[in-house]
Design a protein around this nucleic acid. Structure first.
Length: 846
DNA sequence: CCACAGCATGGTC
DNA sequence: CGACCATGCTGTG
């Protein structure tokens, strides 16, 4: 972040680099050539084309230049090159494989690409009003952050220099880097026409499409090389006309008595401190005055800043650049006005620190409280010109959860209400792309104040600290989202080997689908169960069906007989209980009590047999999702040589179907393990009395069925190894429910048995066996494990031999006594049970 | 004991 | 590797 953008080659003859980059375009051209840069063309060059990496422009003949400007260059010359993709929105083919068209598309967050027009359209429509100009510009400029071949930092910096609307920017890096920035051809159309050739030459990537003008942008660049302009990258003049290109309001100014001598230092402010004011914010700040707002910098409040100490740590460079110079640590009082006009006086001072200074604003607590700010929110500093009055604004952080974000309107500035905010690289949501740092600031912000002294974690941990609940929420949300991800339809994955393990790699982004439960039906066919949006009945569909996010019985073209909500569902409640993860059933039970009552006829799901078990094992274990990183990292799926239930099977979705009579390794293993378990169990049971527990369980069983899920809570501390990638399993659920109270044996809760009163704890982690079977608990714990495994076994037996008898409570001698369907976690029982069985066997026969 | 002021430390960039 | 800065620690009133 603090490192400057990697410099581009400054040579004006650097065609080599370009040729490397875009070999298909210009493999033979040289700068000395008078020929068109396009190697497929023999005409004489006459016009400028795309921006080369060197900073120069490809010089094209008239025809090629026209093609380029029309966006048809790649179509004309690269039609057989690789890298063509289709716009996710309009389907238009876009060449994503070379520098020529690099501006023509943008990578979508959810994968895929959007052509520039669609990207701009959707973006402008939805967010132009509220997003930060920088982001708009990213689209305007067609910037593609993810393009791996681009120096990301540089691109980022480029984009940061552009703003939208009537704001002005400084292309300050012209001076520093000589070649930083993005410039659009449209800029030659701007009234100010600041882009004199020299500067244009120094700026990065040209834009072959009209863009800026379409979003009503007026962009100016201050290119006064003699005045290396620091941030702010723009200044808004509310009642003035646009600048003529030289920002008279900044630089060279005497500000608070201090000549701005440190222009270079200021220009090196970290981007995160660059002010990113929206029009609304500026308007708020400016009020009705005729003042010119000069955004200075902004800072996201840290926990310390927002804490009760009342000290706001100022970025050193910002402090030195924009605040009065202080030579004494005591500093001086600083009068700051908030955007409501209220004046605050802070002590601006510093502490000596490592031969340096640490600048702080003291006494900010009242102000921060007044603004109701917390960690994660952003305070902005700007100055009213020509008064030189410091103005402090703020921007509330966006909410942490998607739902919140959907429902809430984040506050920007003082009452400037916008949605989406402009966190940019600070954006909690932009963090999503960056591997797990999801919303860390915001989440931290939610919790940091009251946690101030609570942690002795390392700094990193502290900075990434997320309050537990938030983290859970986040994780679950993420997992749920993951559960919906599927490989794109008809997409054949390529198999890549990493460290000896083969992985299926999907080039295209996953698609979102409706969560479904995968299983195998009675004829060994892979199916998936999907719940109707309306009646909440579960319907069986072919496994390879990719469903939209919303699905109802009426869409059931695969089973016309059940294409109406009035038709009963195939599954018994009991079968559902086994089939559907608890969380889903919780939801279902909440929403569909009535619907369930409507079920007057159920058909049996026959002969699932070991196949189901195996499938469930796959679902539960083999598709472990990285949210449980341990599961994934410690046991990649299908590890060669591993004999676990997962690895002895072919990869999910591959290999033969299992039938009850199947004698494959998997089935035999499962059978053997169950058999062994049952033998051991009988033996053990004859030796040890289990009456107490038995009666206890029976007692619980009696109140098995209907219970409100109100007593449930989500578990948070047990990363489940039994999750899925979503690519083959539709089950998104990792949530587990716990019925509190009724079985409050703490040992039981702690042991490997389930907190769900007898159900298998599906979160057993092989890695944690030690703690799960401590010697101190070997007696009762073992019995419980056996018992629970047995229960599971029996349940499975019932399930597997189900003949349609809709008698869920039947003779559940060993039934868990849980809360019926809502506690069911059957899809993961397979894996857990097998794992448990295996462990028990190992313990019994070391 | 608490709050505050100032310094020190260590992680991150 | 050094600068920055978030935050912990400690002394003092």
């Amino acid at each position: 972040m603090s490192s400057p953008p990697p410099p581009l080659p400054t040579s004006t003859t650097a065609t080599t680099a370009n040729n490397n980059y875009n070999a298909s375009c210009s493999s033979s051209s040289t700068v000395l050539s008078i020929k068109c840069f396009n190697s497929d063309c023999t005409d004489v060059k006459s016009r400028k084309g795309w921006r080369l990496r060197s900073g120069d422009f490809a010089e094209l003949c008239d025809r090629c230049a026209s093609a380029y400007e029309e966006g048809s260059f790649c179509e004309a010359f690269h039609s057989r090159a690789s890298g063509w993709r289709c716009c996710e929105s309009c389907g238009k083919r876009v060449h994503c494989g070379c520098i020529v068209s690099i501006q023509a598309f943008t990578l979508l967050d959810a994968g895929g690409i959007a052509c520039l027009a669609c990207a701009r359209k959707s973006f402008v429509l939805s967010e132009l009003q509220t997003r930060m100009p920088y982001e708009v510009d990213r689209l305007n400029t067609g910037e593609t952050f993810s393009a791996p071949s681009l120096e990301k930092r540089k691109v980022e910096d480029f984009s940061e220099k552009f703003i939208n609307g009537n704001l002005r920017i400084r292309l300050r890096d012209i001076v520093e880097n000589g070649n930083a920035g993005i410039i659009g051809e449209e800029q030659s159309q701007t009234p100010s026409s600041l882009m004199e050739d020299a500067s244009a030459q120094q700026f990065g990537i040209s834009i072959p499409y009209k863009s800026l003008s379409e979003s009503n942008s007026q962009i100016e660049g201050s290119v006064n090389a003699l005045q290396p302009a620091p941030p702010p990258p723009f200044t808004k003049h509310f009642h003035g006309s646009l600048h003529n290109g030289v920002d008279s309001s900044v630089d060279g100014h005497i500000r608070n008595g201090k000549p701005r001598t440190d222009a270079r230092g200021r220009s090196q402010l970290l981007p995160r401190y660059w002010p990113r004011f929206t029009d609304g914010e500026l308007h708020q700040i400016s009020g009705n005055s005729n003042s010119v707002i000069k955004p200075l910098f902004e800072k996201m409040l840290s926990a310390s800043d927002a804490g009760r100490i009342g000290r706001l740590v100022l970025p050193k460079k910002c402090a030195e650049a924009y605040f009065p110079p202080i030579s004494q640590p005591e500093g001086l009082p600083l009068r700051v006005q908030d955007s409501t006009g209220k004046e605050w006086i802070f002590q601006f001072r510093f502490w000596p620190n490592n031969n340096s200074r640490m600048y702080v604003l003291e006494g900010v607590t009242p102000c921060i409280q007044n603004m109701q700010l917390q960690a994660g929110d952003t305070v902005t500093f700007s100055r009213l010109e020509p008064e030189g009055k410091l103005v402090m604004g703020f921007r509330k952080a966006t909410s942490a959860t998607p739902s919140d974000q959907d429902n809430e309107t984040s506050q920007i500035g003082n009452g400037v209400s916008t949605k989406g905010d402009a966190e940019l690289d600070h954006s909690p949501w932009s963090k999503v792309d960056k591997s797990g740092y999801i919303a860390k600031e915001v989440l931290e912000g939610k919790s940091s104040i009251r946690k101030r002294k609570s942690s002795t974690l390392g700094s990193k941990s502290k900075r990434l600290r997320i309050e537990k609940e938030d983290m859970i929420e986040l994780k679950l949300t993420w997992e749920e989202a993951q559960g919906l991800l599927r490989p794109p339809p008809d997409h054949v994955p390529s198999i890549v080997a990493i460290e000896g393990f083969e992985f299926e790699e999907y080039e295209d982004a996953p698609v979102l689908g409706k969560p479904t439960i995968f299983a195998t039906d009675n004829v060994g066919q892979k199916v998936q169960w999907v719940q109707c949006e309306d009646c909440l009945k579960w319907r069986k569909l072919p496994a390879n069906t990719l469903l939209p996010s919303k699905w109802a019985c009426s869409s059931n073209t695969w089973d016309p007989e059940r294409s109406s909500c009035s038709v009963a569902q195939e599954l018994t409640a009991e079968q559902l209980e086994y089939l559907i993860p608890s969380c889903k059933l919780v939801v279902a039970s909440k929403r569909s009590k009535d619907a369930r009552k409507e079920i007057d006829r159920v058909e049996a799901l026959e002969g699932e047999g070991l196949d189901t078990l195996a499938n469930l094992a796959i679902l539960g274990e083999g598709e472990a999702f990285p949210a449980s990183s341990q599961a994934t990292t410690k046991h990649p799926r299908h590890r060669p040589g591993c004999s676990c239930i997962v690895c002895i099977q072919p990869p999910s979705g591959k290999g033969p179907k299992h039938k009850q009579t199947c004698t494959c390794t998997v089935c035999q293993t499962v059978k053997r393990r169950f058999k062994t378990l049952m033998m051991k169990r009988e033996k053990k049971q004859s030796e040890k009395e289990a009456e107490t527990k038995q009666s206890e369980k029976e007692a619980v069983t009696t109140r098995k069925k209907p219970q409100e899920p109100s007593a449930e809570k989500l578990l948070d501390d047990e990363p489940s190894p039994s999750s899925n990638t979503g690519s083959e399993s539709g089950s998104p659920n990792k949530k587990k429910t716990v019925s509190e109270g009724s079985d409050g044996d703490p040992k039981r809760m702690k042991s490997s048995t389930s907190p769900f009163k007898g159900q298998i704890d599906l979160n057993i982690q092989p890695e944690r066996e030690d703690e799960l079977s401590p010697g101190s608990d070997s007696g009762g714990g073992m019995m419980r494990m056996l018992q629970d495994a047995t229960e599971t076994y029996l349940r499975m037996q019932r399930f597997l031999s189900s003949d349609g008898d809709n008698n869920p409570s039947g003779n559940h001698m060993l039934s868990s006594g849980g809360t019926g369907e809502k506690n069911s976690v059957m899809p993961r029982c397979g894996a857990a049970a097998i794992k448990m069985l295996t462990r028990i066997i190992l313990q019994l026969f070391p």
